[in-house]
Computed example of a mutant assay.
Amino acid sequence: MKVPSQLIPGRLLRRYKRFMADVELGDGTMVTAHCPNSGSMLGCAVPGSLVLLSRSGNPARKFPYTWELVQADGCWVGINTALPNRLVREGIEQGIVAELQGYELIRQEVCYGSERSRIDLLLEGPGLCYVEVKNVTLIDGDVARFPDSVTERGQKHLRELMAMVESGARSVNLFVVQRADARTVAPADAIDPAYGRLLRRAVEAGVELLAYQARVTPEEIVLSHSLPISL
C-alpha cells in the first residue's frame, strides 16, 4: 500500500488524551495531530522521537495532521490502527497471505456475534471465515507482543471468534506487526494476563492464529512475510 501523500517529518513533543499528539515540525512550528491508536503505544510515544505525519486536504477537519509513523529502536513503526485491515485485504488479494486463499468474496466491518461486534474481514465462499486483525507495535527484545495495554475489547473479539468456530465457521486472529525488528509474536502476559489466557483457550477451541510482518517505509507499507507465534 502506497502512502497516500508525502509524509511530513517532525519531533514528538507529547501524546495525550489517547488521540492527540503535539509535534514540532522542521521549521519550528508546533502542530496538534490526530493519533489513530487507542493503545498505550508503549515504547512508541517517547518525547523527542522522529515522527511522520500525513496532512488531510479536508478543510472541515479540526486537526488536519495525522500521526502515521514513528522511529523507535532504529526502525520505522506504523502506529495507525486503521491500516492493518487494508494491509491484510491487500495481502489476501495479492496472494501474500497464503493461509487465506480460495475465498470468492471479502467483506469488511460486518456485524456479527452475540456481543454485537464487527468482524474486520469476512471471507465467503466456500464457507465462512471470520478474520480479526490486530495491530502490533510493542517490542520486547525481538518479540512483538500484543496487547500494549489491557484490552477488554480484544477479549470480546476472542470470545466472538470462539463462538463462530462452535457454529461451524472458520475463525482467524491475525496479528500485523508494523515494524521490522520482530522475529516472533507472543501475548503480552505481563500487561494483560487475562487476554493471554483467553488467547490460549481460543486456540484450544479451534481459533487459528496468524502473524504477518509489514515492511514499513515512508513511501509504502506492505505485508512482507509470516512470523512464528509463541504461546
Rank of each mutant, 00 (worst) to 15 (best):
L50C: 03
L52F: 03
L52Y: 04
L52C: 02
S54T: 11
S56L: 08
G57W: 03
G57I: 08
N58Y: 04
N58A: 07
P59D: 13
A60F: 06
R61H: 09
R61P: 01
K62W: 03
F63H: 14
Y65Q: 11
Y65A: 09
T66K: 13
W67D: 06
W67K: 05
E68G: 00
E68Q: 15
E68W: 06
L69R: 03
Q71F: 00
A72C: 05
D73L: 05
D73C: 03
G74L: 08
G74S: 08
C75T: 15
V77G: 01
V77A: 04
I79D: 01
N80L: 05
N80R: 10
T81Y: 04
T81M: 06
A82P: 00
A82N: 12
L83V: 14
L83G: 00
P84T: 09
N85S: 08
L87H: 04
L87M: 11
V88M: 10
R89W: 04
R89P: 00
E90D: 15
G91W: 06
G91M: 09
E93W: 00
E93F: 01
E93K: 14
G95F: 10
I96E: 05
I96C: 06
A98S: 09
L100S: 06
Q101G: 11
Q101C: 05
Y103W: 15
E104C: 02
E104P: 00
I106C: 06
R107F: 02
Q108A: 13
Q108I: 02
E109T: 09
C111A: 13
C111Q: 10
Y112H: 15
Y112A: 08
G113M: 05
S114H: 10
S117F: 00
R118W: 02
R118A: 05
R118Q: 07
I119F: 05
I119Q: 07
I119G: 01
D120K: 08
L121F: 02
L123M: 11
E124C: 02
E124F: 00
G125F: 07
P126E: 15
G127S: 12
G127Y: 06
L128S: 04
C129W: 07
V131K: 08
V131H: 07
E132R: 10
K134R: 13
N135T: 13
N135I: 07
V136E: 01
T137L: 09
T137G: 01
L138N: 03
I139Y: 00
I139K: 12
D140R: 15
G141M: 10
G141H: 11
G141A: 04
D142R: 15
